[in-house]
Simulated scan of single mutants.
Amino acid sequence: MNIFKQLGKSLYSPKDIATFRFQGIGKTILYVFFLTLISLLPSFYYLSSGLINGINEVRDSIKNELPPFQIENGELQSEHEAPIILNKGKFTIIFDSTGTYDTDLLKNSDKTIAILKHDAYFIAGGQVQSLPYTMFSTIPLTNEDLLDLLATVDSSFAVIIPLMAVVIFIFASGMKFIEVSILALLGLFLKKILHRNLHYRHTWRLAAYSVTLPTIFFTIMDCLQTTVPNGVLINWFVANILLFLTIKEIPQPKK
């Protein structure tokens, strides 16, 4: 059975998932990578489109709406004495050289670029990217210098966006493998309850396919940009139920 058919079967059929316990571990690992890639497609899209639109908005705002400033010794310096928040349609730009803006507020924001006292933040597609000013050289950066830098970044998007996507994919794959491994350990507990003859290598394969349904569900929610309350609990609950039903489909060993 190819990987696409396995994906379809894993959405609704514990009986079919149970048959995957004997397949090669390489194919199961490939499936986890494939599932991770699918789950990240909405984030990749919103991140790339948000980055492109955000850079354009920031460039226009620096030219026309933000006060004169410079970045020197790792700090944003300006004579403006209060934070500035600009709502640009679906995008928000925050400028604060005073250090009074609470960065915890950024966790609940989306499509936002924040130019703060010590760092710049970019939030889009559920991803938060930060850029500390200490990464720049010791030479002060003014408005005009930053506009030139943004023009350079804009021309480098063909390289920057794929690199960011690769880094996010590697990190997300690691988290998915940890999720599957923990679920497989719970599978050992379930197999004792159900009196099934399984080893960890079997429950790991079953766990890899049991996470398919919640992963696809939350991918659809990401496409719709809809937040699901208690998403982590729902994810683990559905995956555990599906793993339980899968192990239950495995015949009991003959006495």
Rank of each mutant, 00 (worst) to 15 (best):
P14M: 05
W236G: 12
I71K: 01
A151M: 00
S137T: 14
D96F: 08
T103E: 04
Q70L: 04
I71L: 01
P253N: 06
G231I: 00
D60R: 09
P83K: 06
I84S: 08
F177S: 10
I115E: 02
Q6Y: 00
L131Y: 15
S210A: 13
L190M: 15
L41P: 08
T152N: 07
K248H: 09
G174L: 05
L194D: 10
T103F: 00
T28M: 12
N235H: 14
V153S: 02
I115N: 02
K254R: 02
S155M: 00
R21G: 11
P214E: 11
K111A: 06
F189V: 13
I123P: 07
H80L: 09
S48G: 15
K27Y: 15
E249S: 14
K88G: 02
G231R: 10
R205W: 06
R59S: 10
E144W: 12
F237G: 15
N108H: 06
A208R: 05
L106Y: 04
P14Q: 02
G187M: 02
F4K: 13
M164D: 00
L185W: 11
P132L: 02
N143F: 07
G8N: 09
D104C: 00
L147H: 07
G187Q: 01
L40K: 11
I123F: 07
G54C: 11
I62R: 10
F95M: 02
I115K: 13
I193H: 14
L131P: 09
A165W: 12
G54A: 10
Y133Q: 05
F169Y: 13
S137M: 04
F44V: 04
Y209V: 13
E144S: 14
V159G: 01
A18F: 10
L86H: 11
V228D: 00
M175K: 12
S181F: 15
D145L: 00
S181E: 11
L224Y: 03
D16R: 15
L37Y: 13
I250E: 01
N2P: 08
D96Y: 09
